[in-house]
Nucleic acid binder design. Structure first.
Lengths: 201, 201
DNA sequence: AGCTTGTTGTACTGATCGGTACAGTGAGAC
DNA sequence: GTCTCACTGTACCGATCAGTACAACAAGCT
Protein backbone atom coordinates (compact mmCIF):
# COMPACT_ATOMS: atom_id res chain seq x y z
CA UNK A 1 0.00 0.00 0.00
CA UNK A 2 2.85 2.36 0.78
CA UNK A 3 0.41 4.95 1.98
CA UNK A 4 2.61 6.03 4.83
CA UNK A 5 6.27 6.33 5.62
CA UNK A 6 7.58 3.75 8.04
CA UNK A 7 10.19 4.58 10.61
CA UNK A 8 13.28 2.55 9.97
CA UNK A 9 15.21 3.23 13.12
CA UNK A 10 14.24 2.88 16.79
CA UNK A 11 14.66 6.58 17.28
CA UNK A 12 12.41 7.33 14.35
CA UNK A 13 9.80 4.90 15.57
CA UNK A 14 9.77 6.55 18.95
CA UNK A 15 9.19 9.95 17.40
CA UNK A 16 6.49 8.69 15.08
CA UNK A 17 4.72 6.96 17.94
CA UNK A 18 4.89 10.08 20.08
CA UNK A 19 3.24 12.06 17.31
CA UNK A 20 0.47 9.52 16.81
CA UNK A 21 -0.08 9.19 20.55
CA UNK A 22 -0.43 12.91 21.02
CA UNK A 23 -2.71 13.20 18.01
CA UNK A 24 -4.88 10.32 19.18
CA UNK A 25 -5.34 11.85 22.60
CA UNK A 26 -6.04 15.36 21.36
CA UNK A 27 -8.42 14.23 18.65
CA UNK A 28 -10.29 12.09 21.13
CA UNK A 29 -11.16 15.21 23.05
CA UNK A 30 -11.22 18.00 20.48
CA UNK A 31 -12.06 16.18 17.28
CA UNK A 32 -10.04 16.05 14.09
CA UNK A 33 -10.72 19.52 12.79
CA UNK A 34 -10.32 20.89 16.30
CA UNK A 35 -6.84 19.45 16.60
CA UNK A 36 -4.21 21.33 14.65
CA UNK A 37 -0.94 19.84 13.55
CA UNK A 38 0.85 22.48 15.56
CA UNK A 39 -0.90 21.41 18.76
CA UNK A 40 -0.03 17.79 18.11
CA UNK A 41 3.62 18.69 17.66
CA UNK A 42 3.68 20.88 20.73
CA UNK A 43 2.16 18.06 22.78
CA UNK A 44 4.50 15.43 21.41
CA UNK A 45 7.61 17.56 21.56
CA UNK A 46 8.33 16.88 17.92
CA UNK A 47 9.04 19.40 15.22
CA UNK A 48 7.21 19.99 12.01
CA UNK A 49 9.84 18.36 9.89
CA UNK A 50 9.34 15.10 11.77
CA UNK A 51 5.64 15.16 11.22
CA UNK A 52 5.96 15.69 7.50
CA UNK A 53 8.80 13.23 7.35
CA UNK A 54 6.50 10.43 8.47
CA UNK A 55 3.18 11.65 7.11
CA UNK A 56 2.39 13.15 3.75
CA UNK A 57 -0.28 15.37 5.27
CA UNK A 58 -2.71 15.69 8.15
CA UNK A 59 -5.15 13.16 6.68
CA UNK A 60 -2.47 10.48 6.76
CA UNK A 61 -1.84 11.27 10.39
CA UNK A 62 -5.53 10.79 11.02
CA UNK A 63 -5.31 7.42 9.28
CA UNK A 64 -2.65 6.37 11.73
CA UNK A 65 -4.77 7.66 14.57
CA UNK A 66 -7.72 5.56 13.43
CA UNK A 67 -5.51 2.49 13.44
CA UNK A 68 -4.32 3.39 16.90
CA UNK A 69 -7.90 3.75 18.12
CA UNK A 70 -8.77 0.30 16.88
CA UNK A 71 -5.74 -1.16 18.65
CA UNK A 72 -6.68 0.59 21.88
CA UNK A 73 -10.30 -0.49 21.66
CA UNK A 74 -9.56 -4.13 20.99
CA UNK A 75 -6.79 -4.08 23.58
CA UNK A 76 -9.32 -2.97 26.17
CA UNK A 77 -11.69 -5.86 25.47
CA UNK A 78 -9.44 -8.90 25.10
CA UNK A 79 -12.38 -11.22 25.69
CA UNK A 80 -13.51 -10.45 22.17
CA UNK A 81 -10.67 -12.62 20.85
CA UNK A 82 -11.91 -15.79 22.49
CA UNK A 83 -15.66 -15.91 22.52
CA UNK A 84 -16.47 -19.56 22.92
CA UNK A 85 -19.40 -19.48 25.32
CA UNK A 86 -22.26 -17.27 26.42
CA UNK A 87 -20.31 -16.53 29.56
CA UNK A 88 -17.50 -15.18 27.38
CA UNK A 89 -19.93 -12.80 25.74
CA UNK A 90 -20.98 -11.53 29.11
CA UNK A 91 -17.35 -11.11 30.10
CA UNK A 92 -16.87 -9.07 26.97
CA UNK A 93 -19.67 -6.66 27.88
CA UNK A 94 -18.20 -6.36 31.36
CA UNK A 95 -14.82 -5.43 29.96
CA UNK A 96 -16.50 -2.88 27.75
CA UNK A 97 -18.07 -1.27 30.79
CA UNK A 98 -14.94 -1.43 32.88
CA UNK A 99 -12.99 0.62 30.37
CA UNK A 100 -15.28 3.55 30.91
CA UNK A 101 -15.79 3.01 34.61
CA UNK A 102 -12.15 3.65 35.38
CA UNK A 103 -12.78 6.97 33.76
CA UNK A 104 -10.22 9.70 33.51
CA UNK A 105 -11.07 10.72 29.99
CA UNK A 106 -14.55 11.31 28.64
CA UNK A 107 -16.97 8.40 28.27
CA UNK A 108 -16.88 7.88 24.55
CA UNK A 109 -15.77 5.64 21.74
CA UNK A 110 -12.93 7.29 19.83
CA UNK A 111 -14.20 5.81 16.60
CA UNK A 112 -17.74 6.92 17.37
CA UNK A 113 -16.54 10.45 17.90
CA UNK A 114 -14.91 10.36 14.51
CA UNK A 115 -17.90 8.82 12.78
CA UNK A 116 -19.96 11.97 12.93
CA UNK A 117 -17.23 14.39 12.02
CA UNK A 118 -15.53 12.41 9.29
CA UNK A 119 -18.88 11.50 7.81
CA UNK A 120 -18.30 12.32 4.20
CA UNK A 121 -14.57 12.71 3.90
CA UNK A 122 -13.92 10.28 1.04
CA UNK A 123 -10.47 9.44 2.34
CA UNK A 124 -11.24 8.97 6.01
CA UNK A 125 -14.81 7.64 6.10
CA UNK A 126 -13.88 4.29 4.51
CA UNK A 127 -11.16 3.83 7.09
CA UNK A 128 -13.54 4.37 9.96
CA UNK A 129 -15.90 1.92 8.30
CA UNK A 130 -13.06 -0.54 7.96
CA UNK A 131 -12.09 -0.17 11.60
CA UNK A 132 -15.64 -0.87 12.69
CA UNK A 133 -15.83 -3.93 10.43
CA UNK A 134 -12.60 -5.21 11.90
CA UNK A 135 -13.93 -4.75 15.41
CA UNK A 136 -17.21 -6.41 14.46
CA UNK A 137 -15.49 -9.31 12.73
CA UNK A 138 -14.30 -10.63 16.07
CA UNK A 139 -17.89 -10.70 17.28
CA UNK A 140 -18.97 -12.50 14.14
CA UNK A 141 -16.27 -15.09 14.62
CA UNK A 142 -17.31 -15.60 18.22
CA UNK A 143 -20.95 -16.04 17.34
CA UNK A 144 -20.00 -18.51 14.62
CA UNK A 145 -18.04 -20.47 17.17
CA UNK A 146 -21.10 -20.63 19.38
CA UNK A 147 -23.13 -21.71 16.40
CA UNK A 148 -20.65 -24.47 15.58
CA UNK A 149 -20.80 -25.66 19.16
CA UNK A 150 -24.57 -25.82 18.87
CA UNK A 151 -25.14 -23.08 21.42
CA UNK A 152 -26.54 -20.65 18.89
CA UNK A 153 -29.51 -21.48 16.67
CA UNK A 154 -28.42 -22.73 13.25
CA UNK A 155 -30.72 -20.31 11.47
CA UNK A 156 -29.34 -17.29 13.32
CA UNK A 157 -27.26 -14.89 11.24
CA UNK A 158 -24.01 -14.15 13.12
CA UNK A 159 -23.19 -11.17 10.93
CA UNK A 160 -26.53 -9.54 11.55
CA UNK A 161 -26.46 -10.28 15.26
CA UNK A 162 -22.97 -8.86 15.52
CA UNK A 163 -24.07 -5.68 13.77
CA UNK A 164 -26.95 -5.38 16.20
CA UNK A 165 -24.51 -5.73 19.09
CA UNK A 166 -22.24 -3.06 17.65
CA UNK A 167 -25.24 -0.81 17.24
CA UNK A 168 -26.06 -1.20 20.92
CA UNK A 169 -22.50 -0.50 21.95
CA UNK A 170 -22.29 2.66 19.86
CA UNK A 171 -25.70 3.95 20.80
CA UNK A 172 -25.07 3.25 24.45
CA UNK A 173 -21.74 5.03 24.35
CA UNK A 174 -23.13 8.03 22.51
CA UNK A 175 -25.92 8.59 25.01
CA UNK A 176 -23.66 7.78 27.96
CA UNK A 177 -21.19 10.27 26.55
CA UNK A 178 -23.51 13.25 26.42
CA UNK A 179 -25.14 12.36 29.74
CA UNK A 180 -21.87 11.62 31.52
CA UNK A 181 -23.65 8.56 32.83
CA UNK A 182 -22.85 4.96 32.04
CA UNK A 183 -26.42 3.79 32.64
CA UNK A 184 -27.29 4.06 28.97
CA UNK A 185 -24.43 1.78 28.01
CA UNK A 186 -25.18 -0.69 30.79
CA UNK A 187 -28.80 -0.95 29.70
CA UNK A 188 -27.92 -1.16 26.03
CA UNK A 189 -25.50 -4.01 26.63
CA UNK A 190 -27.92 -5.85 28.88
CA UNK A 191 -30.68 -5.57 26.30
CA UNK A 192 -28.38 -6.60 23.49
CA UNK A 193 -27.14 -9.62 25.39
CA UNK A 194 -30.70 -10.66 26.19
CA UNK A 195 -31.57 -10.29 22.52
CA UNK A 196 -28.67 -12.51 21.49
CA UNK A 197 -29.58 -15.06 24.13
CA UNK A 198 -32.97 -15.25 22.46
CA UNK A 199 -31.18 -17.13 19.68
CA UNK A 200 -29.70 -19.64 22.07
CA UNK A 201 -30.26 -23.22 21.13
CA UNK B 1 -31.86 34.32 28.89
CA UNK B 2 -30.99 36.96 26.34
CA UNK B 3 -28.22 34.80 25.03
CA UNK B 4 -28.88 35.77 21.45
CA UNK B 5 -30.06 38.78 19.51
CA UNK B 6 -33.54 38.48 18.10
CA UNK B 7 -34.46 39.91 14.74
CA UNK B 8 -37.10 42.54 15.22
CA UNK B 9 -38.13 43.11 11.61
CA UNK B 10 -39.28 40.66 8.92
CA UNK B 11 -36.27 41.51 6.84
CA UNK B 12 -33.93 40.82 9.72
CA UNK B 13 -35.66 37.57 10.51
CA UNK B 14 -35.25 36.41 6.93
CA UNK B 15 -31.55 37.13 7.04
CA UNK B 16 -31.06 35.48 10.38
CA UNK B 17 -32.94 32.40 9.22
CA UNK B 18 -30.90 32.22 6.04
CA UNK B 19 -27.70 32.24 8.08
CA UNK B 20 -28.92 29.52 10.45
CA UNK B 21 -30.23 27.43 7.55
CA UNK B 22 -26.93 27.58 5.71
CA UNK B 23 -24.98 26.85 8.87
CA UNK B 24 -27.22 23.90 9.75
CA UNK B 25 -26.79 22.35 6.34
CA UNK B 26 -23.04 22.87 6.16
CA UNK B 27 -22.40 21.67 9.69
CA UNK B 28 -24.50 18.59 9.06
CA UNK B 29 -22.04 17.57 6.38
CA UNK B 30 -18.72 19.08 7.43
CA UNK B 31 -19.07 19.33 11.19
CA UNK B 32 -18.82 22.44 13.32
CA UNK B 33 -15.09 22.98 13.20
CA UNK B 34 -15.11 22.13 9.49
CA UNK B 35 -17.61 24.86 8.74
CA UNK B 36 -16.16 28.35 8.80
CA UNK B 37 -18.21 31.45 9.35
CA UNK B 38 -17.09 32.69 5.96
CA UNK B 39 -18.50 29.61 4.23
CA UNK B 40 -21.80 30.02 6.02
CA UNK B 41 -22.04 33.62 4.91
CA UNK B 42 -21.08 32.80 1.33
CA UNK B 43 -23.76 30.07 1.24
CA UNK B 44 -26.43 32.26 2.78
CA UNK B 45 -25.58 35.36 0.79
CA UNK B 46 -25.25 37.39 3.95
CA UNK B 47 -22.37 39.59 4.98
CA UNK B 48 -20.23 39.41 8.03
CA UNK B 49 -21.87 42.35 9.73
CA UNK B 50 -25.21 40.54 9.64
CA UNK B 51 -23.77 37.47 11.23
CA UNK B 52 -22.22 39.39 14.10
CA UNK B 53 -25.27 41.55 14.38
CA UNK B 54 -27.40 38.55 15.28
CA UNK B 55 -24.81 36.35 16.98
CA UNK B 56 -22.15 37.30 19.44
CA UNK B 57 -19.79 34.68 18.07
CA UNK B 58 -19.63 31.38 16.25
CA UNK B 59 -20.64 29.36 19.32
CA UNK B 60 -23.91 31.24 19.53
CA UNK B 61 -24.56 30.44 15.90
CA UNK B 62 -24.01 26.80 16.72
CA UNK B 63 -26.52 27.13 19.55
CA UNK B 64 -29.11 28.31 17.06
CA UNK B 65 -28.17 25.45 14.76
CA UNK B 66 -28.72 22.92 17.53
CA UNK B 67 -32.18 24.35 18.12
CA UNK B 68 -32.85 24.13 14.42
CA UNK B 69 -31.75 20.49 14.35
CA UNK B 70 -34.16 19.60 17.13
CA UNK B 71 -37.00 21.31 15.26
CA UNK B 72 -36.16 19.44 12.08
CA UNK B 73 -35.86 16.12 13.85
CA UNK B 74 -39.15 16.42 15.71
CA UNK B 75 -40.83 17.79 12.60
CA UNK B 76 -39.83 14.67 10.73
CA UNK B 77 -41.42 12.34 13.29
CA UNK B 78 -44.75 13.95 14.16
CA UNK B 79 -46.04 10.68 15.54
CA UNK B 80 -43.88 11.27 18.59
CA UNK B 81 -46.30 13.97 19.72
CA UNK B 82 -49.25 11.63 20.04
CA UNK B 83 -48.14 8.26 21.24
CA UNK B 84 -51.26 6.71 22.69
CA UNK B 85 -51.01 3.11 21.53
CA UNK B 86 -48.45 0.49 20.59
CA UNK B 87 -49.41 1.05 16.97
CA UNK B 88 -48.43 4.70 17.37
CA UNK B 89 -45.00 3.64 18.54
CA UNK B 90 -44.61 1.51 15.46
CA UNK B 91 -45.73 4.41 13.31
CA UNK B 92 -43.09 6.52 14.97
CA UNK B 93 -40.31 4.07 14.08
CA UNK B 94 -41.61 3.97 10.53
CA UNK B 95 -41.43 7.74 10.26
CA UNK B 96 -37.91 7.60 11.61
CA UNK B 97 -36.92 5.23 8.85
CA UNK B 98 -38.76 7.11 6.13
CA UNK B 99 -36.77 10.27 6.81
CA UNK B 100 -33.59 8.52 5.84
CA UNK B 101 -35.08 6.42 3.08
CA UNK B 102 -35.93 9.46 1.01
CA UNK B 103 -32.27 10.18 1.20
CA UNK B 104 -30.57 13.06 -0.50
CA UNK B 105 -28.28 13.93 2.36
CA UNK B 106 -26.18 11.51 4.33
CA UNK B 107 -27.86 8.97 6.60
CA UNK B 108 -27.20 10.51 9.97
CA UNK B 109 -28.66 12.28 12.94
CA UNK B 110 -27.51 15.92 12.99
CA UNK B 111 -27.39 15.86 16.76
CA UNK B 112 -25.50 12.58 16.74
CA UNK B 113 -22.91 14.06 14.44
CA UNK B 114 -22.43 16.91 16.87
CA UNK B 115 -22.30 14.68 19.92
CA UNK B 116 -18.86 13.37 19.14
CA UNK B 117 -17.30 16.61 18.06
CA UNK B 118 -18.78 18.90 20.66
CA UNK B 119 -18.05 16.37 23.37
CA UNK B 120 -16.35 18.54 25.92
CA UNK B 121 -17.11 22.06 24.85
CA UNK B 122 -18.60 23.39 28.08
CA UNK B 123 -20.87 25.78 26.24
CA UNK B 124 -22.19 23.47 23.56
CA UNK B 125 -22.27 20.03 25.16
CA UNK B 126 -25.04 20.92 27.63
CA UNK B 127 -27.15 22.20 24.75
CA UNK B 128 -26.80 18.96 22.83
CA UNK B 129 -27.69 17.11 26.00
CA UNK B 130 -30.70 19.36 26.43
CA UNK B 131 -31.84 18.76 22.86
CA UNK B 132 -31.65 15.02 23.35
CA UNK B 133 -33.61 15.25 26.59
CA UNK B 134 -36.26 17.30 24.87
CA UNK B 135 -36.53 14.72 22.11
CA UNK B 136 -36.64 11.90 24.63
CA UNK B 137 -39.23 13.64 26.77
CA UNK B 138 -41.85 13.06 24.10
CA UNK B 139 -41.13 9.35 24.24
CA UNK B 140 -41.37 9.38 28.01
CA UNK B 141 -44.72 11.13 27.84
CA UNK B 142 -45.99 8.61 25.29
CA UNK B 143 -44.91 5.66 27.39
CA UNK B 144 -46.54 7.19 30.44
CA UNK B 145 -49.75 7.54 28.46
CA UNK B 146 -49.60 3.86 27.61
CA UNK B 147 -48.96 3.10 31.24
CA UNK B 148 -51.95 5.17 32.32
CA UNK B 149 -54.10 3.34 29.80
CA UNK B 150 -52.93 0.08 31.31
CA UNK B 151 -51.10 -1.03 28.16
CA UNK B 152 -47.69 -0.79 29.76
CA UNK B 153 -46.77 -2.67 32.93
CA UNK B 154 -47.14 -0.47 36.01
CA UNK B 155 -43.68 -1.37 37.24
CA UNK B 156 -42.02 -0.38 33.97
CA UNK B 157 -39.90 2.78 34.08
CA UNK B 158 -40.89 5.02 31.16
CA UNK B 159 -37.80 7.19 31.52
CA UNK B 160 -35.47 4.25 31.36
CA UNK B 161 -37.31 2.63 28.48
CA UNK B 162 -37.28 5.88 26.57
CA UNK B 163 -33.54 6.19 27.08
CA UNK B 164 -33.10 2.67 25.78
CA UNK B 165 -35.11 3.58 22.71
CA UNK B 166 -33.01 6.68 22.09
CA UNK B 167 -29.91 4.58 22.46
CA UNK B 168 -31.15 2.25 19.75
CA UNK B 169 -32.01 5.12 17.46
CA UNK B 170 -28.62 6.73 17.85
CA UNK B 171 -26.65 3.53 17.58
CA UNK B 172 -28.63 2.44 14.55
CA UNK B 173 -28.09 5.76 12.86
CA UNK B 174 -24.39 5.82 13.62
CA UNK B 175 -23.77 2.40 12.14
CA UNK B 176 -26.15 3.03 9.25
CA UNK B 177 -24.28 6.26 8.63
CA UNK B 178 -20.84 4.81 8.23
CA UNK B 179 -22.15 1.79 6.29
CA UNK B 180 -24.44 3.82 4.04
CA UNK B 181 -27.00 1.14 4.77
CA UNK B 182 -30.21 1.54 6.70
CA UNK B 183 -30.28 -2.10 7.79
CA UNK B 184 -28.60 -1.30 11.08
CA UNK B 185 -31.26 1.26 11.94
CA UNK B 186 -34.09 -1.01 10.85
CA UNK B 187 -32.82 -3.84 13.03
CA UNK B 188 -32.12 -1.55 15.96
CA UNK B 189 -35.64 -0.15 15.88
CA UNK B 190 -37.20 -3.56 15.49
CA UNK B 191 -35.24 -4.91 18.44
CA UNK B 192 -36.02 -1.85 20.55
CA UNK B 193 -39.72 -2.09 19.80
CA UNK B 194 -39.74 -5.78 20.68
CA UNK B 195 -37.98 -4.96 23.92
CA UNK B 196 -40.56 -2.34 24.81
CA UNK B 197 -43.36 -4.71 23.90
CA UNK B 198 -41.93 -7.07 26.47
CA UNK B 199 -43.29 -4.64 29.06
CA UNK B 200 -46.76 -4.75 27.61
CA UNK B 201 -49.47 -5.48 30.10
C1' DA C 1 -39.34 66.50 6.23
C1' DG C 2 -36.20 64.56 9.89
C1' DC C 3 -35.03 61.35 13.50
C1' DT C 4 -34.24 56.81 15.25
C1' DT C 5 -33.26 52.22 15.13
C1' DG C 6 -32.56 47.99 12.82
C1' DT C 7 -29.95 46.45 9.17
C1' DT C 8 -26.26 45.98 5.69
C1' DG C 9 -21.53 46.31 2.75
C1' DT C 10 -16.74 46.40 2.75
C1' DA C 11 -12.39 46.64 4.32
C1' DC C 12 -9.49 45.24 7.76
C1' DT C 13 -6.81 42.86 11.84
C1' DG C 14 -3.91 39.55 14.26
C1' DA C 15 -3.78 34.76 14.96
C1' DT C 16 -3.63 30.32 13.31
C1' DC C 17 -4.11 27.05 9.70
C1' DG C 18 -1.67 23.19 6.75
C1' DG C 19 2.34 22.71 4.34
C1' DT C 20 7.34 23.72 2.50
C1' DA C 21 12.46 24.87 2.24
C1' DC C 22 16.63 23.91 3.63
C1' DA C 23 20.41 23.56 6.43
C1' DG C 24 21.93 20.76 9.94
C1' DT C 25 22.73 16.60 13.20
C1' DG C 26 22.98 11.81 14.70
C1' DA C 27 24.22 7.02 14.51
C1' DG C 28 25.23 2.78 12.23
C1' DA C 29 27.98 0.58 8.06
C1' DC C 30 32.27 -0.04 6.09
C1' DG D 1 37.56 7.76 10.33
C1' DT D 2 34.14 8.96 7.02
C1' DC D 3 30.31 8.16 4.29
C1' DT D 4 25.48 7.86 4.16
C1' DC D 5 21.00 8.45 5.05
C1' DA D 6 17.50 8.68 8.42
C1' DC D 7 16.23 12.09 11.21
C1' DT D 8 15.71 16.85 13.21
C1' DG D 9 15.30 22.33 14.09
C1' DT D 10 13.81 26.57 12.55
C1' DA D 11 12.24 29.87 9.68
C1' DC D 12 9.04 30.75 6.47
C1' DC D 13 4.78 30.78 3.00
C1' DG D 14 0.07 31.92 1.34
C1' DA D 15 -4.50 30.89 2.79
C1' DT D 16 -7.90 30.97 5.96
C1' DC D 17 -9.59 31.57 10.53
C1' DA D 18 -12.84 34.25 13.95
C1' DG D 19 -13.83 38.64 14.95
C1' DT D 20 -13.90 44.14 14.49
C1' DA D 21 -14.44 49.03 12.65
C1' DC D 22 -17.16 52.04 10.60
C1' DA D 23 -19.79 54.19 7.29
C1' DA D 24 -23.94 53.71 4.75
C1' DC D 25 -28.64 52.23 4.08
C1' DA D 26 -33.80 51.25 4.86
C1' DA D 27 -38.03 51.95 7.00
C1' DG D 28 -41.32 53.20 10.51
C1' DC D 29 -42.73 57.12 13.50
C1' DT D 30 -43.74 61.88 14.42
Amino acid sequence: METQAAASTPRGKRTRDAIVDAAAQLMYVDGVAGTSVDKVLAASGAGKSQMYHYFKNKDQLVEAVIDRYLEQILGNQPAIFELTSWADLETWTEQLLDVHRRAGGPIACPLGNLAGEVGDNPKLAPLVDQAYRNWESHLVRGLKTLQDKGELAPDADPARLAQAAMTSVQGGLLIAHIRHDLTALEDALRIALAYLRGFRS
